Simulated assay, not measured.
Amino acid sequence: MKIRGIRWWMVGLVTAGLIVNYLARNAAFLIVAFVVCVLARSGEHRPAGARWTAMPAASNPTV
């Protein structure tokens, strides 16, 4: 039995596999990077009730 266009199905499946593999590796890297950033930031100390800001306060002696 001959299936028409079988080569294009194979090319499509290989291409889809490469894309899924790339996205899976990239997602894993992004998840690890996010966790590392969260863990690194959890070690920072701030006064109770203080909020994170883009720029530290000028009066903060630890900066």
Rank of each mutant, 00 (worst) to 15 (best):
M1Q: 08
K2L: 00
K2S: 04
G5Y: 08
W8N: 15
W8C: 14
W8S: 14
W9H: 09
M10G: 09
V14E: 14
T15D: 03
A16N: 06
A16M: 06
I19Q: 06
I19L: 15
I19W: 15
V20S: 13
V20F: 09
V20D: 14
N21F: 13
N21W: 09
N21S: 14
N21M: 13
Y22F: 10
Y22C: 04
A24E: 04
A24M: 11
A24N: 02
A24V: 12
R25A: 01
R25T: 07
R25I: 02
R25Q: 05
A28D: 09
A28H: 01
F29M: 13
L30E: 15
L30K: 14
V32C: 10
V32N: 14
F34A: 10
F34E: 03
C37F: 06
L39D: 09
L39H: 08
L39N: 09
L39A: 14
A40T: 14
R41G: 12
S42D: 11
S42V: 15
G43W: 08
G43F: 12
E44T: 01
H45F: 11
H45N: 14
H45A: 07
H45D: 05
A48C: 00
G49L: 01
G49Y: 02
A50E: 01
R51I: 01
W52N: 08
T53S: 02
T53E: 04
T53P: 01
A54N: 02
P56C: 13
A57N: 04
A58Y: 06
A58S: 00
S59F: 02
N60R: 03
N60V: 01
P61R: 02
T62A: 12
T62Q: 15
T62R: 15
V63Y: 08
V63P: 01
V63R: 04
